[in-house]
Design a protein around this nucleic acid. Structure first.
Length: 492
RNA sequence: GCGGGUGUAGCAUAGUGGCUAAUGCACCGGCCUUCCAAGCCGGCUACGAGGGUUCGAUCCCCUUCACCCGCUCCA
């Protein structure tokens, strides 16, 4: 079994094999940012592809979308991100521990659950100013805090080259809002009927307080999100449906069952918008064997679409306020909000309503790493250690290695021809250098499922050997059957 | 952000206030080689960055960057 027991081992493995590098390494690195190397980018692309195929292409009820990262600022007002993501933090002067102001407890009473959510920063600031009776959760000291400081969790940027009329925009902290903002467009153009989903893969950005832990929590990351719209009342059914489906997606792609689990959120752990939420967690094999979240599946109810209906009603205020978000309040909800601009007309029920949403939201980077770590293996072969990555064929960066047994007697030419033919269908790798055993082992380390070798017999009967990564066994296959043979084995 | 630790080649380790910074694996070239990291010959690549002390710093000091562990945080 794998001897990965520390995070360092994973980092080292990732670098050694060309999967993941520190960003800007030649300049000393940039905290929390990582780059994918030659094998890593193939792996990550394959993870994306596998998600997209199972979520969009294999289903009749889900369509895809690719939204811009920069969106209208009001999107984030309506979603609650501009308010909620600006957490107030205070630091205890005695022990230097920082705590969210809304998490601070009163000295005597237990009454302290005043969340800053949905409160403008100014209001929250005013309300939170008085920390004199608050208790430091770390050292127990009372009332010795720094001034509360807002903690911007969204990246800001400016749009417009002209400084005078440039506008503050945010890099999206989740891809989900782009889907909600396009709900109407998709409804009007894609002939979808509830229940249906809209899926998107893309980068998101969060100015996390702490990153650390390699690529588990980075400030720039890639999400694969599905918003599945359904009739209120059927939401629990679909929640269960996606919970099972998404769990099995990882298992079907080779994650060992004992390393994957579902963890339901406790009611007090739920985000304000969610009726229920479950995490799919992977047990990374280092440290205390901590379970880390790969994906969250939430029942977001009709919260988001309703919020955007409110946002649309707030647009004029925003213009009147010089396009400044900070001092405006979201307009209230219309009385007939159920038939508002983001409602859905249900043909069967002959009525309008705001659909409920089930959201499976996966981290592509985390998943790619979990697949990598889970595939890692070491085994003894004739007294030597064989390192290999037992990737599922769909995820393997390289599908087929093609070698001439030796570098003469016409073998390289034949092997080249086979390689040139096969690379139209799979990602292949040609290698003629060094001993054949060494070349096999190199591909084992990259996780390549099959290796084809052209040998002396090939020139006589036009057959080659196909060597299996896992068993190391070889079978002879006729060259004109090769493509079919590989397709079947790779299930592609 | 706090406390602790680390930073020497692609990786893993050695070593030193002063000689060409060592070893293994990997990698590249050559010879040999007809199926699982063989052998021989040759070769490339490193003291995270900046400053200070010093005749001289990879080593001592300061700053900084990055990573790891723990705390905190993780809508």
């Amino acid at each position: 079994m794998a001897k990965i027991t520390k995070l360092d081992d994973i980092v080292s493995l990732c670098k050694r094999r060309g999967f993941i590098f520190q960003s800007s390494e030649i300049y000393g690195g940039l905290a929390s940012c990582y780059d994918y190397g030659p094998l890593g980018v193939e792996l990550k692309n394959n993870v994306r592809k596998a998600w997209w195929k199972s979520t969009v292409q294999m289903r009749d009820d889900i369509v895809g979308l690719d939204c811009s990262i920069l969106m209208h600022p009001m999107v984030w007002k309506a979603s609650g991100h501009t308010d909620q993501f600006a957490d107030l933090i205070a630091e205890c002067k005695k022990c230097n521990v920082r705590t969210r102001v809304d998490h601070l407890q009163e000295k005597v009473t237990e009454q302290a659950e005043e969340h800053t959510e949905h409160i403008a920063i100014d209001a929250a600031m005013a309300k939170a100013q008085d920390l004199s009776s608050k208790l430091c959760p770390n050292c127990g000291t009372v009332g010795r805090f720094t001034e509360p400081m807002p903690f911007e969790l969204m990246f800001e940027t400016q749009m417009g080259a002209n400084v005078d009329d440039s506008m503050t925009l945010y890099l999206r902290p989740e891809t989900a809002q782009g889907i909600f903002a396009n709900f109407r467009n998709v409804l009007d153009t894609a002939r979808v009927k509830i229940p249906f989903g809209i899926a998107q893969i893309g980068k998101s950005f969060r100015n996390e307080v702490t990153t650390k832990a390699f690529i588990f929590r980075t400030r720039e990351f890639e999400q694969a999100e599905l918003e599945f719209f359904c009739r209120p009342g059927t939401d629990e059914h679909w929640y269960k449906h996606w919970k099972e489906l998404r769990f099995n997606w990882y298992i079907d792609l080779g994650i060992k069952k004992e390393n994957l689990r579902l963890r339901d959120h406790e009611p007090d752990e739920l985000a304000h918008y969610a009726k229920a939420c479950v995490d799919i967690e992977y047990r990374f094999p280092f440290g205390s064997g901590d379970w880390q979240e790969l994906e969250g599946i939430a029942n977001r109810t009709d919260f988001d679409l309703r919020q955007h209906q409110r946002g649309m009603r707030t647009l004029n205020k925003w213009f009147e306020n010089d396009r400044d978000l900070t001092n405006i309040e979201l307009s209230g909800e219309a009385e007939d909000y159920q038939s508002g601009p983001l409602s859905y007309f249900d043909d069967e029920q002959k009525k309008r309503y705001i659909p409920y949403v089930i959201e499976p939201s996966a981290g592509i980077d985390r998943s790619a790493l979990a697949f990598l770590v889970d595939a890692y293996d070491e085994e003894e072969v004739r007294g030597e250690t064989r390192n290999l990555l037992r990737f599922h064929p769909a995820l393997a960066p390289v599908k087929v290695g093609v070698f001439p047994l030796v570098k003469r007697e016409g073998m390289p030419e034949i092997a080249q021809n086979i390689y040139n033919d096969l690379k139209k269908y799979f990602n292949c790798f040609y290698d003629e250098k060094g001993a054949i055993g060494r070349r096999y082992r190199r591909q084992d380390e990259a996780g390549t499922p099959f290796c084809i070798t052209v040998d002396g017999q090939t020139t006589e009967d036009k057959t080659v050997t196909v060597r299996d990564r896992n068993s190391m066994e070889q079978v002879r296959v006729s060259t004109d059957q090769l493509l079919n043979h590989l397709r079947e084995k790779l299930d592609m």
